[in-house]
Simulated assay, not measured.
Amino acid sequence: MNAHSSPTQPAGRTASPHADGGRLELVGLRRAFGSYTALDGIDLAVERGEFIALLGPSGCGKSTALNCIAGLLPLTGGEIRLDGRPIHELEPEKRGFGMVFQSYALFPHMTIRKNVGFGLAMQGVPRAEADARVDAALDLVRLRSQADKLPGQLSGGQQQRVAIARAIVIRPPVVLMDEPLSNLDAKLRLEMRAEIRAIHEAIGSTTIYVTHDQDEALSLADRIVVMANGVIRQVGAPEDLYERPAHGDVADFMGFRTRIPARVLDADGTVEAAGARLTLPPARGHAPGSAISISVRPEDLVAGTAQGLPAEVRSIEYRGRAWFGSAALADGTLVFFRSEGRLASGQRASLSFDPARTLVFPAEAA
């Protein structure tokens, strides 16, 4: 897999000659369902050939945004532009986008070849050209040998590759993917990640990929768009969002599962949290007396003998090489931690962390 590009412009990629256009702009995108606002003014520019992941929890608006881009949902306000041309009033089939659904959406009575070629038939592409393009798409997803089978004769991973072939065979400027791997088991998801990125590189189309899985977003995307409550919270390269989330909710979604309420005691970095005194790096920009939230990843909050936060273990599970669990601090805050050995539920533990591996946010902004 290629290295990720900068947050503003995908580097080192040239668009495939098969991809016509593909710079997508969302300008003030709004979508309401009665009194409920699902999208509240989305602004985003996606460059030609870029792979963008829309990431966020259920209900954040990511699938609504994808369906608006596809034309499956009308806008309440704003514009969608493709290469500078407004397209938001066009019917879905006139936008020319390829779409891959979570459910595969294959025709069960059609062979794999006919499923893949369906869009070309609807476009009236001559038979000889259509056959050649279907063969090329099946070769790309490594399913030419399965061309005469029915979807029910293939595995889930193979069916998803058929769905991808059907989406790309029409040579779309933009490919839209709505949680395409969520129905697959863990091993197949890992394999399909590599497949999807390789196909993206091969065809050069712009790709917008919806997921709630941060690992998928980190491994696939050039840029990640984190959404919450119908708005964009942060946009950046995977490594930027992983290491430097700008908001507490973004940090939570990028793996900083534990938030510890604390109060700053002095400018040297001493804070009070759950009845214990801790020292954080000074000059974090929080005045003495201010309420803060300390965000830390489970792997960085470690159970041990060193002086730290007293806690009571609530649950523990083995994940290979280490134990991970949850515990309650003295003030009732639920935290997630790592341990080198097994601990019993109800056992007392001392949890410590490297202050350099934490993030600090104002309590009201966390």
Results as ranks from 00 to 15, higher is better:
334 L>P: 02
320 G>D: 02
307 Q>D: 11
127 R>I: 08
119 G>E: 11
100 V>F: 14
173 P>K: 09
330 A>T: 13
235 V>K: 05
29 L>E: 00
362 P>Y: 06
184 L>K: 14
181 L>Y: 02
336 F>S: 13
123 Q>S: 04
223 R>W: 04
253 F>W: 11
151 P>L: 09
291 A>G: 01
326 S>L: 02
165 A>C: 03
24 L>I: 12
202 A>E: 13
56 G>W: 04
5 S>F: 01
228 A>P: 00
9 Q>Y: 13
252 D>P: 00
139 D>G: 15
265 L>I: 14
86 P>R: 14
144 R>W: 07
228 A>C: 07
304 G>F: 00
133 R>W: 02
348 R>F: 01
144 R>N: 10
172 P>R: 14
77 G>M: 01
296 V>L: 02
242 Y>M: 12
15 A>I: 12
340 E>S: 10
167 A>L: 03
347 Q>F: 02
196 I>E: 06
82 L>W: 03
191 E>N: 11
97 F>C: 08
269 G>S: 09
52 I>F: 04
136 A>T: 14
272 E>S: 14
285 G>W: 07
61 G>H: 08
39 L>V: 07
205 S>V: 12
102 Q>A: 09
352 S>L: 05
5 S>I: 06
186 A>W: 08
58 S>P: 12
13 R>C: 03
278 L>N: 04
164 I>T: 11
64 T>N: 00
311 A>V: 06
228 A>Y: 05
353 F>I: 05
60 C>S: 15
205 S>R: 02
50 E>V: 04
7 P>F: 12
249 D>G: 00
7 P>E: 05
266 D>H: 08
117 G>A: 08
300 D>K: 11
158 Q>M: 13
223 R>T: 15
35 S>C: 01
358 T>I: 09
57 P>E: 06
313 V>M: 13
252 D>M: 06
314 R>I: 15
302 V>C: 05
20 D>R: 13
71 G>A: 04
309 L>R: 03
304 G>A: 02
32 A>Q: 00
35 S>I: 07
3 A>P: 00
186 A>S: 12
41 G>T: 11
10 P>T: 14
329 L>T: 00
294 I>A: 13
129 E>L: 15
331 D>V: 07
202 A>S: 12
280 L>Y: 09
146 Q>H: 09
